[in-house]
Design a protein around this nucleic acid. Structure first.
Length: 567
RNA sequence: GCGCCUGUAGCUCAGUGGAUAGAGCGUCGGCCUCCGGAGCCGAAGGUCGCAGGUUCGAAUCCUGUCGGGCGCGCCA
C-alpha cells in the first residue's frame, strides 16, 4: 500500500483507476529501465478503462497497442513485459495478464477494493467528492444560467437551462471546483417598458399593445398594481415614464416569482447581476476602452465596430450604434470584464441553441481584451419541444401560451424532472409528450434507484431491531460472487464523478445509479443479508449494503434528487 | 447560400478510438412459504442516416452527402 503513495508524491490517486494507472506507469518505466522494451521518445498518457467482461478482469489498458508502432515491437510482447512487472505491484493489482491483440487485463486486489468500500462509510459526505477540501486548489468557476428576462414566469424552455446549469454546477463542485451560480437580470431593456405598458393597458381596460404581453400573469399583475403607479406624476414629461415605472414594479414582482420557482426546483443563485449595474459601474465603457486601446475598434457609418473578423468571426460587430446607444453585445463584453475582475478563473455560460451565433463574437472580444479565450466557455442547450396528442404546443411568452417551470414540476415532480434532464445531454433536442411524460413519471427510473435506497434503509432498520450492526469493514467478504460484484460497482463511484466533472455532464451519473440499483436488486435476490445463523457474515454484508446505500444517496444528491428512507 | 447543433432498438435516450453497441418504456413469456413485487428472470427487436477515408481497431476522428433543428440586425 505504501508503495502506491511513494510513487505519487504530489497527489495520491483519488480513484482505484488512478492507482492502477500509476501502477502501470511504474511497470512501464521498470520495463524500459530493464531493457525489456525500447526507450520512449515522449511520455504518453496511459489509458485505463473498465473491462467490459468479467473474464477480462476489472481494468484494462491499451498502452501496449499504442506503443507498438513507435517502439516497433509486437503489441503482445509489450503487453507481456508490462503485465510481468505489474504482478509485482502489491497494493491494488491482484493479477495482470497480457492478451491478444495487446491488452493488459488487470484484476483488483481484494484489500484495496475493501478499503475503498469502507471509505464510503467512514466519510459519507466526502464519498465521490474529489480532491477533498479544494478551496485552495480548485479553480473558481462562474456558471451563468437561466438569465431569463423578467417579463413573465419561467417557461420549460428556461427550465432546460435551469436544470443544465444547476447540474453542471453540482458536478463541478463534486470535482473539487468552486462554483458561483449567476443570474444575469435584464432590468433596463425596452421589454421592461413593454411589460409595463401591457400591465397598464390591462389595468385601464385598454387593448394591450400589439407586441405586448398577454398571459394570465399580466391580468394578475394589473389587478395588484398599486394606485400610485397608475397616476401620472406631476411634472413628468416623458410619455413612457409611467410604463417604465410600472414595468420596473412588475419585473420586480416577476423576479420574486422566478426565484420562488427556482427555489422549488432546488436551485439557488449566488449572484444576481443587473444589466443596469454594468452601465452605471462603468464596465461597459471599460470594455470599449480596452478594445479601443488595443486597436480593435473602428468607426463606420457613424457607428463603432469591433473587428471580430480579425479573430475568425464572419463579420464585424457594432458596439456603439450611430445613435450613441451601446449594443447588447457591448454589455456582454463589459460583463466579461466584470466577471474576471471578480476573480473567476473560468466563465461558463448556459445559453439556448438560438444563441450560438453570439458565441464567437463574445469569445473573440474576450481574447481582444487580453483574456484567455479558453476561459470563456459556452454550453448551448437543445430545445425542449413539447407536443400534446401529437400536436406541437407552441410557446410564446408574449402570446401567453406557454408551459411554465411550475407546471412541469407540478406534473412530474422535482425528482423525476431532475432525473429526466440529468440523463440527457445538454445539447440534444428533446421531444416531450406532456401526457406521456406525466403517465411515465411514475415509471421514471429515478424511482427505481430511490426504491433500492429505501429497501436498504429498511434492511438496516430491520437488522438493528434484530441486534445486528454493520461491521467496520467489508474485508473478507469480497472473494465470492454476489458480494464481489456489488462491491466493485460501489467502488467505481469516484471514477464516475471524476468522469462527470471532466466531461461536465451528468448522464454518466444517472446511468451509473441505475446500474448500481440493478446490481443491488440482484444482490438482494442472491445474498441473504440478515442471517442470524451467520452473524459475522451478516455484519459484513450490512457494511456492504450500507456502502451501497451511501453511494446511491451520493449519486442522487449529486443530481439534487432526494434519497428517501422509505417510500 | 454560409455557419453551428443533431441523426443509435417501435418510443425516449446512454455510449467523448477498444474486446459480442446498452438502458428505461412498450411488446411477449415466466417468478410472491423467506430481509420491501415501485422487485426478479427470460425472449423478440440494430445495414449506429448513407458513401468514402484515417487506424492494429471507428457509433466515436476526417471528407463528402441526405434528413431535422437553429442562427446569419446599428434587436435583445
Amino acid at each position: 500500500m505504501s508503495r502506491m503513495l511513494d510513487s505519487t508524491p504530489a497527489a495520491p490517486p483519488a480513484t482505484l483507476r488512478g492507482a492502477i494507472r500509476d501502477a502501470i506507469e511504474r511497470a512501464l518505466g521498470e520495463a524500459v529501465a530493464a531493457g525489456d522494451i525500447g526507450p520512449l521518445d515522449e511520455p504518453r498518457p496511459i489509458e485505463v478503462q473498465r473491462s467490459g467482461k468479467p473474464e477480462h478482469g476489472d481494468y484494462a489498458t491499451n498502452v501496449a497497442l499504442q506503443l507498438a508502432r513507435p517502439l516497433r515491437m509486437p503489441p503482445l510482447a509489450i503487453a507481456s513485459a508490462i503485465a510481468a512487472r505489474l504482478q509485482d505491484a502489491a497494493g491494488v493489482v491482484d493479477s495482470a495478464e497480457a492478451v491478444a491483440p495487446g491488452f493488459v487485463n488487470i484484476r483488483l486486489a481484494d484489500p484495496a477494493l475493501a478499503a475503498v468500500v469502507d471509505a464510503a462509510r467512514r466519510e459519507p459526505d466526502h464519498w465521490g467528492r474529489l480532491a477533498g477540501p479544494a478551496e485552495s486548489t480548485g479553480r473558481h468557476v462562474n456558471v451563468e444560467f437561466v438569465s431569463a428576462n423578467p417579463t413573465g414566469p419561467l417557461t420549460v424552455g428556461n427550465a432546460r437551462g435551469a436544470f443544465v446549469g444547476d447540474l453542471l454546477a453540482r458536478v463541478l463542485e463534486a470535482g473539487g471546483q468552486r462554483v458561483t451560480r449567476e443570474y444575469y437580470f435584464n432590468d433596463s431593456s425596452a421589454q421592461v417598458r413593454n411589460l409595463g405598458a401591457s400591465v397598464l393597458a390591462q389595468r385601464e381596460g385598454r387593448p394591450i399593445p400589439e407586441d405586448g404581453y398577454h398571459g394570465d400573469y399580466v391580468i394578475a399583475l394589473a389587478t395588484e398594481l398599486p394606485q400610485e403607479l397608475i397616476a401620472p406624476r406631476p411634472g413628468e414629461s416623458d410619455p413612457d415614464a409611467r410604463a417604465w415605472a410600472v414595468g420596473h414594479w412588475a419585473s420586480a414582482r416577476i423576479r420574486e416569482g422566478i426565484e420562488a420557482s427556482l427555489a422549488h426546483l432546488g436551485v439557488r443563485f449566488d449572484a444576481w447581476t443587473t444589466e443596469g449595474s454594468l452601465a452605471t459601474e462603468g464596465w461597459v465603457d471599460q470594455a470599449i476602452e480596452r478594445l479601443r486601446d488595443g486597436g480593435h475598434l473602428y468607426e463606420q457609418d457613424g457607428a463603432t465596430w469591433f473587428r471580430s473578423t480579425a479573430f475568425g468571426d464572419d463579420k464585424d460587430r457594432v458596439v456603439i450604434r450611430s445613435n450613441g446607444e451601446r449594443t447588447y453585445f457591448a454589455f456582454d463584453i463589459g460583463y466579461v470584464i466584470q466577471k474576471f475582475s471578480r476573480g473567476f478563473d473560468h466563465l461558463i455560460y448556459i445559453w439556448g441553441a438560438d444563441h450560438h451565433g453570439t458565441v464567437a463574437r463574445v469569445r473573440n472580444a474576450a481574447a481582444a481584451m487580453g483574456f484567455d479565450k479558453a476561459r470563456v466557455e459556452m454550453i448551448l442547450t437543445g430545445w425542449v419541444h413539447f407536443v400534446r396528442d401529437g400536436v406541437e404546443v407552441s410557446m410564446s411568452k408574449r402570446a401567453g401560451t406557454f408551459i411554465t417551470l411550475d407546471d412541469l414540476l407540478e406534473q412530474l415532480g422535482v425528482d423525476a424532472a431532475r432525473w429526466y434532464f440529468a440523463s440527457r445531454g445538454a445539447n440534444v433536442n428533446m421531444d416531450v409528450d406532456i401526457e406521456l411524460a406525466r403517465r411515465q413519471s411514475s415509471e421514471n427510473p429515478v424511482y427505481y434507484v430511490q426504491y433500492a435506497h429505501a429497501r436498504i434503509a429498511s434492511i438496516l432498520r430491520k437488522a438493528a431491531e434484530a441486534g445486528l450492526q454493520p461491521a467496520a469493514s467489508v474485508g473478507g467478504l469480497l472473494a465470492e460472487a454476489p458480494d464481489a460484484i456489488l462491491a466493485r460497482i460501489v467502488a467505481r463511484f469516484p471514477e464516475v464523478v471524476e468522469d462527470a466533472a471532466a466531461a461536465q455532464e451528468t448522464q454518466g451519473v444517472t446511468t451509473y445509479a441505475t446500474e448500481l440499483a440493478t446490481a443491488f436488486h440482484a444482490y438482494y435476490r442472491d445474498a441473504r443479508v440478515i442471517d442470524a445463523g451467520s452473524p459475522e457474515r451478516s455484519a459484513r454484508r450490512l457494511a456492504l449494503v450500507d456502502a451501497t446505500r451511501i453511494t446511491l444517496a451520493s449519486a442522487l444528491g449529486l443530481l439534487g434528487i432526494s434519497a428517501p428512507e422509505a417510500m
